[in-house]
Computed example of a mutant assay.
Amino acid sequence: MAHGNAVAVADDGLGVTATDLHSLAVPEQLRIDVSGVVPDSYIHGHTIEVVADWWRAELAVHGLDADGVLGPRISRGELFELATDIDGRDEVLRLLWNVLAWGTGSRARHGRNRIRAVAADPDRAADLLHAAARLSRTDPAGAYAVLRPGDRANAIGFLGPSFFTKFLYFAGGGDPDHPCHILDERVARALRDLGWVSLPPRGWSASAYQRYNDLLRSWTGSAGPARSDMVERWLFGR
């Protein structure tokens, strides 16, 4: 598995020459927008309205623990707190449900399909999530590959990169040095607009995910935000 920004070995998933990320200048607007931003409000306080009752009802239908769903508003800070104890099956799945609720907001799009996929074999799903969470602390590409082996099919049905990278990010429990960040289609679109032309709009390779996380850390060091996830949120907002 190739890590880092070396163009000769990188594969972003489009079958074209990978963009040299060293050539991407830090966006000046990023410097301006994050100057003086307080992480506690910008990151920990970032709150989304969710359909908590829908999640509880649907989880109960499939015999899964519905009591742990937060709501009707979930913040990043609350998800970080949930991630401090995910050793058991119920705990890691509780984090997953709340991450999915936060990620889908008031729509719960594909939520039923994701619940069904986990309910088909919750022990297997929990084992995969535990393995990915452990790797997320040191090896973004490896964690990504657990949940999308071979850069092809998702290991858990309907849990694709736009959502399982949210899980990988929150599994860090809010550690500002956690190496995994959220990569979804809005973030990818922003990065393509900023010059990463080899980045696919979706279905990224594990190599691309590693390069993405490396880029965020590089921009953080140059632009000055206190945390690299501030860069992710800024990209999403574009």
Rank of each mutant, 00 (worst) to 15 (best):
L70G: 06
N113E: 15
P200E: 07
P179M: 07
Y169I: 03
P201H: 12
E49T: 13
D184W: 03
S218D: 12
F167A: 07
A52Q: 12
L14W: 00
R148P: 03
R56I: 01
A188H: 03
T104D: 02
V16G: 08
W219Q: 02
D121M: 03
L82Y: 07
R189H: 13
S207G: 07
L183P: 00
G157K: 03
H62Y: 14
L147T: 01
S228Y: 00
S41V: 15
L129S: 00
F170I: 11
G173N: 05
F163I: 10
G4S: 13
G142H: 07
S35H: 13
E58W: 06
G224T: 03
A83T: 07
V92C: 04
H22D: 15
L96S: 09
L79I: 02
G13V: 09
P140K: 08
D65F: 05
R89I: 10
M1N: 07
W55Q: 05
A143C: 04
S198V: 09
V9L: 14
T165K: 08
A188Q: 09
G224V: 02
D53Q: 10
A117P: 02
R227M: 05
R217C: 06
Y169K: 05
S222Q: 15
T104S: 14
R192S: 08
A108C: 09
R114K: 15
L235I: 00
R56E: 06
E81W: 05
T138M: 06
R148K: 15
A155D: 08
I156L: 13
A188G: 10
A141I: 05
L168Y: 00
A132K: 00
N98E: 03
A83K: 03
A132Q: 00
G142R: 09
L14F: 05
P161Y: 05
H3P: 00
G111Y: 04
D67H: 11
A52T: 11
A208I: 04
D87A: 15
A8R: 11
G4Q: 09
F163G: 12
A133C: 01
F170V: 10
G150M: 04
V26K: 10
A101G: 02
V231F: 00
E28N: 08
S222A: 15
W54S: 13
R192L: 07
L135H: 01
Q210S: 14
F164T: 01
G160D: 07
R192F: 01
R189N: 13
T138I: 09
S228P: 02
L199P: 03
A18D: 11
G237A: 15
F236H: 06
L183A: 13
S106L: 15
M230Q: 11
D175C: 05
D193P: 00
V37P: 01
V61N: 11
S136I: 04
T84I: 04
A188L: 12
R124S: 11
G142F: 04
R114I: 12
S23T: 15
L82E: 06
G195R: 09
P176W: 06
R76C: 13
V61E: 15
R233W: 04
D11H: 10
G160I: 03
V146A: 03
